[in-house]
Every structure is written in structure tokens, then in C-alpha cells.
Amino acid sequence: METFELITLIILAVVMIISAVMAVLSKEMPLAILASGAISLLASIFFLVLASPDVAMTEAAIGAGLTTFLFFIILRKTDQNKTENEK
């Protein structure tokens, strides 16, 4: 049971690290933002396994939900500006 849990967590950790590298390196901005949101969502699973459900709830609501949404609003507003410049 213990080893199964460990293997699952290590796979999760590897996925999170790959997402982080993708978020930093990706040329596509929406992909980078989604990768960052995925890191927050998987981090909330990690918090739940580390026996802290309070932190897991906060991370899922704020880190994965609201921050990702905020980045998308800013992306739309800055993209608008860029297309107006090109015209």
C-alpha cells in the first residue's frame, strides 16, 4: 500500500515538473497558462496526501481557478492591443 502510494506520487511529481518546464519554455502563451493551472491543480492533490485539506481547498479554488482566469483576461487585453497595432 505504502509503495503504491509512493509510486503514484512520484508519477504526479514528474508530471508537475514536465508541466513547469513546458510553462516556462512554451512559445504559445495559452498553453503556458494552462500548464501553470495544471501544476496548481496537481499541487492541491499533493496537499491532500500531505494531510492538509484546508490548504488543498484554497489551492484548488485560488491557484487553479482564479489565477488562471486572471492570466487569460490579461492575455485577451494585451492581444487586442497587438492586433490593433498591426492594422
Binding site: 510553462a23 502563451m29 492570466f71 490579461i74
Partner: peptide
């Protein structure tokens, strides 16, 4: 925007580290 995104990844990592210290 990429710099701010990197900051938020740093933030998540730091939070995981602090919670892990109390486990």
C-alpha cells in the same frame, strides 16, 4: 507575462515545501 507565470510556479513550489516540513 512569462516572468509573472514563473513567479507563480515559484510560489506553488514554496508552498509545497512549507507544508511538507510540517508532515
Amino acid at each position: 507575462l512569462k516572468i509573472i507565470l514563473s513567479f507563480s510556479i515559484f510560489d506553488t513550489g514554496l508552498n509545497i515545501l512549507i507544508v511538507a516540513l510540517g508532515y
